[in-house]
Amino acid sequence: MVDSLLPLPTQDRFELCEGSDENEDISNRCLLGKILASKSLNQQAVSNILLDAWRSRAKLEISSWSENSFLFQFEDLEDHRRVLAEAPWSVMGNLLVLQPLSARVSASEMVFHWSPFWVQVHGLPVAKMTKQNAEFIGKRLGNLIGVEAMHEGLLLNRSYLRIKMEIDVTKPLPLGFFLQHNSSSGSEQMETWVHYKYEKLADFCYDCGRIGHVNSVCKFVSREEGKNSLYGPDLRNS
């Protein structure tokens, strides 16, 4: 009974000032990134690798915010734009997921589930290699960003379609699909396996198909299930 009479701990509520003059600068010049690795990476090594890879025209500051998460502060807006446009990037074989820093969101609220990739679609019959079909496939793969296409007709400048999109990296990478179509004579229905290849694909697990770890530490499928996996190095573009 005595305990029930004790006052509850005070729960303070504050309103804090915002650095309003700095909000736009933060949004335009900063990126927050997370490296999807199964172990903690050395901050100095990460900084050296990215400074060399990005070769920014102006000053770039890299700060470690938490394990494998980093804040990138660009002095030059064009450097900021180019780094985002040329994503994905990898560090020591591990995918770096980038997103603009929002001044109104805490770092702990930011999620790193989506990363852009150029995806190649191989195995389509020539008659199916159109911009319309590329967009159809892309919208089912993830968040469509764009299609490499100079016109609306047949896209025959390559032997495959090339689609840029955001992929949910928390899920197994899509492998491809079966295309139903008529045979060349038109007399029977056929199925053709159409497969994907990913450009600049970082290390991923050949057992479960997820980015962020390799086979030796997979917790999503059993070793026996992993033996029957269809994932392997062929998912990368040659």
Rank of each mutant, 00 (worst) to 15 (best):
M1E: 10
D3A: 12
P7Q: 03
L8G: 03
Q11P: 00
F14C: 08
F14W: 01
C17G: 13
C17M: 13
C17R: 11
E22Y: 09
E22M: 11
N23P: 10
D25I: 10
I26L: 08
I26W: 06
S27V: 09
N28P: 12
N28C: 12
G33Y: 04
L36Y: 03
L36V: 09
K39F: 11
S40V: 07
N42V: 01
A45V: 10
S47W: 12
I49K: 05
I49P: 09
L50H: 14
D52I: 01
W54A: 08
R55N: 07
R57L: 13
K59W: 09
L60K: 03
E61V: 12
S64G: 14
E67L: 12
N68V: 03
S69E: 14
F74M: 11
D76M: 03
D76H: 13
L77K: 14
R82M: 10
V83K: 11
L84M: 13
L84V: 09
A85M: 01
E86Y: 07
P88N: 05
W89K: 02
M92V: 08
L96R: 06
V97N: 02
L98Y: 06
S102A: 03
S102K: 06
S102P: 05
A103G: 04
R104T: 13
V105T: 10
V105I: 13
S108D: 09
M110T: 06
V111Y: 15
F117Y: 12
H122N: 15
P125G: 05
V126Q: 08
M129E: 00
T130S: 07
T130A: 04
N133L: 07
A134Q: 03
E135I: 03
R140F: 10
R140L: 04
L141S: 12
L144G: 09
I145D: 15
I145R: 09
I145C: 09
I145F: 15
V147T: 03
V147N: 00
A149Q: 01
H151W: 11
G153S: 12
L154P: 10
L156G: 05
L156F: 07
R158Y: 05
Y160G: 05
L161A: 02
R162Q: 07
K164L: 12
E166H: 13
D168H: 08
T170V: 04
K171M: 00
K171N: 02
L179Y: 07
Q180C: 11
N182Y: 14
N182K: 08
S183E: 08
S184Y: 00
S185Q: 14
E188I: 10
Q189T: 12
Q189C: 08
M190N: 12
E191Q: 14
T192F: 05
W193K: 01
H195K: 13
H195F: 14
Y196R: 04
K197V: 15
K197P: 03
Y198G: 03
K200H: 05
L201A: 08
D207P: 04
C208E: 00
C208N: 00
R210V: 06
I211E: 04
V214W: 04
N215G: 14
N215H: 14
V217W: 00
C218S: 06
F220W: 13
F220I: 08
V221H: 01
E225I: 11
G226H: 02
S229W: 01
L230F: 15
L230Y: 14
L235M: 14
S238E: 11
